[in-house]
């Protein structure tokens, strides 16, 4: 995993609430046995017409969205299925940060394991971000803060262990493997 420390980018905004993982990546693209190349199917149902041509008015297809690494989405982003393909598709497309006022549990957990930073913000800031697509933001994970275009800094909460893994660019498996002696002891003590 690439370390995540600081990132500066303009935002692309999808204001719909409750964007589920079937929208992020439809099930018909889940027959892969790999995790690469899913970015081209990101939001496939909303992004392309039936014949595969990009829909010009979909926010990700607008010229000003090119290169944006921060996605601002409506409340409760990533609900539904546990498919990690949703996080893989966003990352493969080039998204590194998802900001919303609420983010579904399994999606959030999957995102953090793939170098994709989910950030929860309060309602007023969320409303401002939704209303200002293209806002130039700086995300400072070392300082747990988000810098708005006017220079104002807003702190955000993030689970400390996931933050550590993102900053170091290490995955969680190493920590879990280091617990194996305790896992073995637990199995002996509980006759598992």
């Amino acid at each position: 995993m690439e370390p995540f420390r600081r990132l500066r980018s303009r935002t692309v905004v999808l204001p719909a609430t409750d964007i589920d993982t079937d929208q992020i990546i439809p099930a018909r693209y889940l027959t892969t046995t790999g995790r690469e190349g899913l970015g081209r199917h990101l939001f496939a149902g909303w992004r392309y017409a039936g014949d595969g041509t990009p829909l010009a008015d979909f926010p990700l297809n607008r010229p000003q969205a090119a290169g944006c690494a921060i996605l601002v989405a409506g409340r409760n982003f990533g609900c539904g299925s546990s498919r990690e393909h949703a996080a893989w598709a966003l990352y493969d497309y080039g998204i590194r940060v998802v900001i919303s006022s609420e983010i579904a549990d399994i999606f959030r957990s999957n995102a953090l394991k793939n170098g994709l930073l989910p950030i929860l913000v309060d309602e007023p800031l969320h409303a401002w971000l939704l209303a200002h697509p293209g806002a130039d933001l700086e995300i400072d994970l070392e300082g747990n803060r988000l810098l708005l275009p006017d220079g104002q800094a807003v702190t955000f909460a993030i689970e400390p262990f996931a933050r550590y893994c993102l900053l170091q660019g290490v995955d969680e498996l190493g920590h879990l493997l280091a617990q194996l002696p305790r896992i073995e002891a637990f199995e002996r003590e509980t006759a598992r």
Binding site: S109, N110, L173
Partner: peptide, 16 residues
């Protein structure tokens, strides 16, 4: 759980 966690459980029988 997600697929990374499926790997965690396969490897350790545990989850964080």
């Amino acid at each position: 759980i997600g697929t990374t966690e499926v790997g965690h459980v396969l490897a350790t029988q545990c989850l964080l």
